[in-house]
Design a protein around this nucleic acid. Structure first.
Ligand code: MN
Ligand code: MN
Ligand code: ZN
Ligand code: ZN
Lengths: 144, 144
DNA sequence: GTCTAATTAGGAATAATTCTTGATTGACTA
DNA sequence: TAGTCAATCAAGAATTATTCCTAATTAGAC
C-alpha cells in the first residue's frame, strides 16, 4: 500500500520535527532518502534505497544511504526489520507492528490493527516474562 | 532449558532415521555438530557450534560446520532463526515455534505451547491472506 | 577388501555492512 | 549577507559472516 500525497506531506513535516528535536541538521540527503521510503511500498533494502535515490540524485553515495538510514532509525522516523533469510529491510513505518510475507513473491505487507491479528501475551506475564514488545511475521500467500 | 540424557538419546536416533530417509551418510561430523546443539541451551551461532565441537574434535573445520548445519536444516533435524540484529542462530528444535528474547542478556528461549501464547489469525484468512505459518518473537526480561 | 559417489578440510571468493578520513555544507551568529 | 565551525558527506578500505571451490578422504554398497 502506497501513501498518498497528503500523508507524504505530513510525514515529511514529522521528519523536520524529529531532526530538530534530535539536534540534527536537515540535509538534502536525509530528505531524499526519507522520501524514497515514503514513496515506496514500504520495505526496501539499503541497496534498493540507493538505486531509487540515485535516479534524482546520482551523487548520493551508498555509504551515505547507510549513514542516513541508521540516523533515521535512531530518531524513530523509520523502522528496520530483518527477514528470515537475513535480509535487512528499512521500513517506512516506525514502531512495533506485524508483517505478512508472501512466500511466492517475497512481498512484505504491514499488518496494522485493522488486519485483525489477535495476540494475547497475558499468560506469559504470569509465568515470569516481563513483556516489552512483540513482533509477529506471518507467512503465506495473498489471494487475488 | 537443556535436554536430559533420555531426550538426547531419542533425538540422536531420529537423526539416524532422517539421514537414512534422505539417503545421506552418517558421518562423525554430522553426529558431533548435532550433539553440540542438543546439549546446548537451544540456539547457537555457527561459530559457537564450531567452538563447542572443537573441544572434542579440533580437526572439524568451520566450513564443515556450515555444511553440516545446512544439511541438518534441510532434512528437518534442526531449525534456523534470524534475530533482529541479523544474527543467524541454529535451533535445536525444528519446526515453527515462537521465541522470547531477553533484552538484557540476549538469551533466546523457546515458547512452546505450554507457555500460553494465544494467537488468532482467523481474521486474516477472511481478508484474503492464506496463512502457511507464523513466527512470533517476544522481547522483554525474564524475571528471577 | 574394493569401489565410488558423497563428504570433508582448507582456503579463496563474495557480499553486506561498517569504518576511516579529508572535503563539504547547514545553521547559527554578528 | 558573510563568516565560522561542528556536523555531515563521499569515497574507498576494512571487516565479517557466509558461500564457493577443489583436491583428498571416507561411508557404505557390493
Ligand atoms: Mn512497516
Ligand atoms: Mn527452538
Ligand atoms: Zn513494516
Ligand atoms: Zn527456538
Amino acid at each position: 500500500m502506497k501513501l498518498d500525497a497528503r500523508q507524504i506531506e505530513t510525514r515529511t513535516q514529522e521528519l523536520y520535527e524529529k531532526l530538530r528535536a534530535a539536534g540534527l541538521k536537515v540535509t538534502l540527503q536525509r530528505l531524499a532518502v526519507y522520501r524514497v521510503l515514503l514513496q515506496s511500498h514500504g520495505h526496501l533494502t539499503a541497496e534498493q534505497v540507493h538505486q531509487a535515490v540515485a535516479r534524482d540524485n546520482p551523487a548520493l553515495s551508498l555509504s551515505t544511504v547507510y549513514n542516513v538510514l541508521e540516523t533515521l532509525v535512531k530518531i524513530g522516523a523509520i523502522g528496520e526489520i530483518t527477514t528470515d533469510g537475513g535480509t535487512k529491510l528499512f521500513d517506512r513505518t516506525p514502531g512495533d507492528h506485524h508483517h505478512f510475507i508472501d512466500t511466492e513473491t517475497g512481498e512484505v505487507i504491514d499488518l496494522d490493527d485493522s488486519a485483525g491479528v489477535k495476540l494475547d501475551l497475558n499468560a506469559l506475564a504470569r509465568r515470569g516474562f516481563a513483556v516489552e514488545g512483540a513482533k509477529l511475521t506471518v507467512y503465506g500467500r495473498r489471494k487475488k
